[in-house]
Simulated scan of single mutants.
Amino acid sequence: MKTTVLPSARADILKQIGYFIDLGLDPVADRFLAAVRMAIDHVSNTPHAGSPRPMKNRRLLGLRTWSIGGFDEIKLYYLVTDDELVIVRVLHGCRDIKGILEV
């Protein structure tokens, strides 16, 4: 299955890495990036494992979530089609998830 990481998700990942680096937590930033890669690999291999999330935005019908290992408050938000997995966002649970996704 083809996996696509949208620019919005890439920006989320880079922002989180930058946050850790700004705090002087470079090893945590490295661990986070590795954990994101592992999570993406996991959902690419088992795309329906993530929890479905009800959405009003019709473009996001079928949106699923998967926690980043070791960073359980940060989740992948992704869509699955017959031949593609699309990583839409990577967001911390303290953020306004509905407000961000329902735009």
Results as ranks from 00 to 15, higher is better:
18 G>D: 11
28 V>C: 00
95 R>G: 08
34 A>R: 03
31 R>K: 14
4 T>C: 03
1 M>G: 06
47 P>M: 05
102 E>R: 10
64 R>D: 00
85 L>Y: 02
8 S>E: 14
4 T>L: 07
21 I>F: 00
27 P>K: 06
56 K>D: 14
91 L>D: 04
8 S>C: 07
79 L>K: 07
58 R>E: 13
90 V>A: 03
64 R>E: 00
76 L>N: 03
55 M>G: 10
72 D>Y: 12
10 R>C: 09
49 A>L: 09
32 F>P: 04
7 P>E: 02
62 G>H: 09
84 E>N: 11
39 A>V: 05
71 F>E: 03
78 Y>W: 06
94 C>G: 14
35 A>R: 02
11 A>C: 01
103 V>G: 15
85 L>I: 08
37 R>Y: 08
74 I>P: 03
25 L>G: 04
4 T>Q: 08
27 P>F: 04
101 L>D: 14
19 Y>N: 04
64 R>T: 01
23 L>Y: 11
24 G>H: 14
45 N>Q: 15
29 A>R: 10
59 R>V: 06
22 D>Y: 10
72 D>T: 12
61 L>M: 13
28 V>S: 01
34 A>S: 08
82 D>S: 14
41 D>H: 09
50 G>I: 02
27 P>G: 09
23 L>W: 05
84 E>H: 11
42 H>P: 01
101 L>H: 14
39 A>Q: 02
93 G>S: 14
4 T>A: 06
17 I>C: 08
31 R>W: 09
82 D>Y: 05
32 F>Y: 15
2 K>G: 00
97 I>P: 11
12 D>I: 12
3 T>H: 06
10 R>W: 11
14 L>G: 11
92 H>Y: 09
22 D>I: 01
77 Y>F: 15
77 Y>E: 05
19 Y>F: 12
95 R>C: 09
72 D>Q: 13
89 R>S: 07
39 A>Y: 01
103 V>Q: 14
4 T>K: 09
69 G>W: 10
28 V>Y: 02
10 R>A: 11
90 V>L: 06
102 E>N: 09
20 F>G: 04
91 L>V: 11
95 R>A: 11
74 I>M: 03
24 G>L: 15
35 A>C: 09
